[in-house]
Design a protein around this nucleic acid. Sequence first.
DNA 1: GTATGATTGAAACATACGTTTGACTGACTT
DNA 2: AAGTCAGTCAAACGTATGTTTCAATCATAC
Lengths: 229, 229
Amino acid sequence: MAGETRERILDVAERLFADSGFASTSLRDITAEAGVNLAAVNYHFGSKEALLGAILERRIRPMNDRRIALLDKVEAEAGADGAAVEQIVTAFLNPAFQQVMAMGTHRRQLLKLLGQLHTQANPETRKLFFRQFDEVRIRFTTSFQRALPDIDPDEVARRMMYIVGAMSYIMMWGEQSGHLPAQTPDRLRQSLVEFASAGMAAPATAPAGIPAPETLPTAASIAAHGGHA
Amino acid sequence: MAGETRERILDVAERLFADSGFASTSLRDITAEAGVNLAAVNYHFGSKEALLGAILERRIRPMNDRRIALLDKVEAEAGADGAAVEQIVTAFLNPAFQQVMAMGTHRRQLLKLLGQLHTQANPETRKLFFRQFDEVRIRFTTSFQRALPDIDPDEVARRMMYIVGAMSYIMMWGEQSGHLPAQTPDRLRQSLVEFASAGMAAPATAPAGIPAPETLPTAASIAAHGGHA
DNA sequence: GTATGATTGAAACATACGTTTGACTGACTT
DNA sequence: AAGTCAGTCAAACGTATGTTTCAATCATAC
């Protein structure tokens, strides 16, 4: 009985927070569905906000640890000239797919929860978890930059962000009815690796130190003209 | 004074909803900052939910109209064999960049708001606006499929989603301190067009009708083994 | 068996919320 | 000048929230 109440709260809260939003989900919703007493949340976690932190900690840390471990392995196996782009991409994407897919029918929950972090969680909770993601992102960006010495490092950093965005989006909304044909998780992972690798390795038109000409109107001119293209 | 109160509420609510979340922002927060009476929201919009709808309507419709217009133009100028991938990508991305950049210092607001739609808005509001995005996505997916007849149409549809994800992510979080070096909007747009075009046109390993072999463990086996790679 | 510390339970607390009400204002019409 | 009506305002309504309290219960060690 010891950890059972705690676990039940975590499971139910993870789902309800993801489905209805952190602010819109009441502790009474959670405790009623979990079959525990209302006071159990504050007893076991201290506050609603700390409950959110515990939910995230349970899922995020293992996933990012696996990413770093895989990257270490890939870099160790490669020579001094850096690992192959597709291998780095795979090291980044595989743990995420494994984590999300292991959640079975509740796959989107973790990512829906992360999406809320920016606007719902208080600043302390927010910074606590984004620091973890930042560390991972920087490690992978550095590895990509070593593998692509001919591309502007800033451009590589941007492309890393594109990959994160593509991954998050497809995991969160890829299974919505009507959006995409049903796919096996591995088929989807393979598709994303191809896309991300091609984008990351694309020839860059404006290498470091050579700023590109402005071809799009500035924000000020758009606002002045009403934004018509 | 007629529409002044209404506009002030829209402006302030757009910012506060985006920054603090729809559920976490009270009508008192909005009316206090806008310098209007609390009852003005329900008088002008009917409800808090309807206020959210009005905010979205004001921004989304023009952007998607411009996307369709640009795609029409690109397709008309191209031959019967379809438009170039990069031109389609540009037709999709330019209006979004223009809309977001035209919002000046409040660039991320619209996208932060859209991100909340899934979990915060009630089902009616949600469906109302996602239908608009679905129409646009389907139009562009079809155009891409015509331009890339050798790639599995389902794969093209997936890649369209990757582009949407990369765009949304970079627009929402690309200006966060520490994530990326500062860039002009046009430089960022150009970078994303390159990335997206390369990813969309990447050779696909598994064309239509030839399913890829499974190389990643299934969800069940991951759960059973604790998810270690 | 009894004492002890961890856990659960029902109830209450203070606060914040979206919404409604009804009086009031001021500009415009007749 | 009287009347009309959209708009504004302060106040109140009912409800839901996170948190706290304190007694009851349970498992375990002595």
